[in-house]
């Protein structure tokens, strides 16, 4: 019988305060490749896990700048460069009348960049994950909270990590298969 490769250890928690304290302990124990799974975003858990601020805003800024430049340059190109046409004696190009469309395109591009950035940073779509075939997972998006420590973590040690999770109040500690 061949034993499948272990992905890591999973521990369940019944309440947000229990999860919060456990995450602080795992963080303080120096683990890096681990995660918490929650049915909703638990306020303040990012700090308890020692996570840094999200990088999504960089994508948003890039998208917004690109959108604004696209709007202005497109309007300049079509109305002042490619086919200049006098309408109502107004100038071929002015940032004033080009503004509303550029403004809308700024928002449009920002929205796409924000969502694209979020998917990229989260490595989604990812329709398979070791966690998903665990029987516990059905409650992960419902009412239970989990901490998963990966076997790939340099500090991972089957017995010691299990002890840490148990001591942090974790229940139903189990091994996840790759």
């Amino acid at each position: 019988m061949t034993m499948k490769k272990s992905y890591g250890l999973i521990a369940a928690f019944d309440s947000t305060p229990a999860l919060f304290r456990a995450c602080e302990q795992v963080r303080d124990a120096g683990y890096t490749r681990w995660d918490a799974t929650t049915p909703f975003h638990v306020h303040g858990l990012d700090a308890a896990m020692g996570m840094r601020r999200s990088k999504v805003p960089r994508f948003s800024l890039a998208g917004g700048v690109a959108g604004f430049i696209t709007g202005m340059s497109m309007i300049w190109f079509v109305d002042a460069f490619d086919y200049p046409l006098i309408v109502g004696g107004k100038p071929y190009f002015s940032p004033m009348f080009a503004f509303p469309v550029s403004y809308e395109l700024t928002i449009l591009f920002t929205a796409f960049a924000t969502i694209g950035g979020m998917f990229l940073l989260n490595k989604l779509p990812m329709h398979y994950h070791p966690l998903m075939k665990a029987p516990q997972f059905v409650r992960a998006m419902d009412d239970r909270f989990y901490v998963v420590i990966e076997a790939a973590d340099p500090k991972f040690h089957a017995a010691q990590t299990r002890a840490l999770l148990a001591q942090a109040g974790g229940q139903d500690i189990a091994e996840l298969e790759e």
């Binding site: 929650t38 975003h41 896990m49 805003p57 950035g117 979020m118 989260n122 992960a140």
Partner: peptide, 17 residues
């Protein structure tokens, strides 16, 4: 659902987005 699994590392980016 794009493989959403409630990871808190995902939630952080999600909430920001």
């Amino acid at each position: 659902a794009m493989g959403w699994r409630g990871s808190n590392r995902h939630w952080a980016n999600y909430e920001m987005a």
